[in-house]
Amino acid sequence: MHNQIFTMFGGSACGKILVFLVERMEARRGPRANETNYRRRHSGLGQIYDRLHAANQVGGAPHPEPLFIHELEDHHPLRIYDRQFTSFKIEEEADWFAAKVKQLFHDFAADRVDRDEIAIVDSYVFQDTLAFAFNMGMDRQRLLSVAESIQSSLQVLNPILIYYVQKNVEQHWRWICEIRGPAFAHDRCGLYTDEDFIRAGEFWTSTQENMLTIVEQWEIPKVIIPNKDYLWEEYRERIIEFVEGFVKRPGK
């Protein structure tokens, strides 16, 4: 679902941070030649991206421009390319997925722990990994084990989390589909009728509740923002204030 997740990691004295941020779904209708760059600049990510970069220059030598890894990025470092799944109620599939996710996140963190960079990574902790596993029927204990493994791998990067919660999930689906248009609603999501939207709202409300439990139990600095009225500028300023404070913090 389109919760918005913003996880940031600070490690070195250079202010290195890594950010997960789920798409705000503010993109205009229609495809773009450079979808990754377009979404960064027109989804609200652009301002956060620019402020992160500016804040990271304070108090020392300039650092590299932030890296943005959209969830649809080609060759995504956290995406599983080598298998399709039927159901995680099938033990072999669940075992394979859990092992692969653990490997991907371990390798991802190990590859970046010594880098001097800010990276913005869209959606891949909760929406595209843990929520996917939950929706595929993974049992609760195994899901929590996968979550703990991800958290353990990422801990070396000193994560900070900003997480948006949709207060009315059905309403949010309708809002998204109005913005993205019929091709998105019908072809990608299979949403045609009021009953479809009602069922989607019920289904993703359950998913969100389960993901929120994991978010709340993750013992890292975090901000959870409930979205009801789509006050994106207000939310964005809250995020920017939090991020800038972290980047400028002594010793980070």
Rank of each mutant, 00 (worst) to 15 (best):
M1D: 05
M1F: 08
N3F: 14
F6I: 09
K16T: 07
R24H: 11
R24G: 06
A27R: 12
A27H: 12
R28G: 14
G30R: 15
A33T: 01
A33G: 07
E35A: 13
T36P: 10
T36K: 10
N37Q: 04
S43N: 08
G44S: 00
I48H: 05
D50M: 03
H53M: 06
A54H: 06
A55Q: 05
E65P: 06
L67W: 11
L72A: 11
D74F: 01
D74T: 10
D82A: 01
K89R: 03
I90K: 13
E91R: 08
D95E: 15
A98K: 07
K102W: 04
K102Y: 04
F105Q: 00
D107N: 10
A109V: 08
D111R: 14
R115K: 12
A119G: 00
A119H: 00
I120T: 14
V121W: 09
D122R: 07
Q127E: 15
T129C: 02
L130K: 06
A131C: 04
A131E: 13
A133K: 03
N135S: 09
G137M: 12
D139E: 14
L143M: 09
A147C: 06
A147I: 09
E148I: 00
Q155K: 08
V156R: 02
P159G: 11
I160A: 13
I160H: 15
I162N: 12
Y163H: 14
Q171V: 03
W175E: 08
C177M: 10
A183K: 15
A183W: 02
F184K: 06
H186N: 02
T193Y: 05
D194K: 06
E195Y: 04
R199E: 08
R199N: 10
F203V: 10
W204K: 07
E209A: 05
E209P: 00
E209W: 09
E219K: 14
K222I: 02
I224F: 00
I225F: 04
Y230S: 06
E233P: 03
R238T: 04
F242S: 12
F242Q: 10
F242N: 13
G245M: 05
K248G: 09
K248A: 09
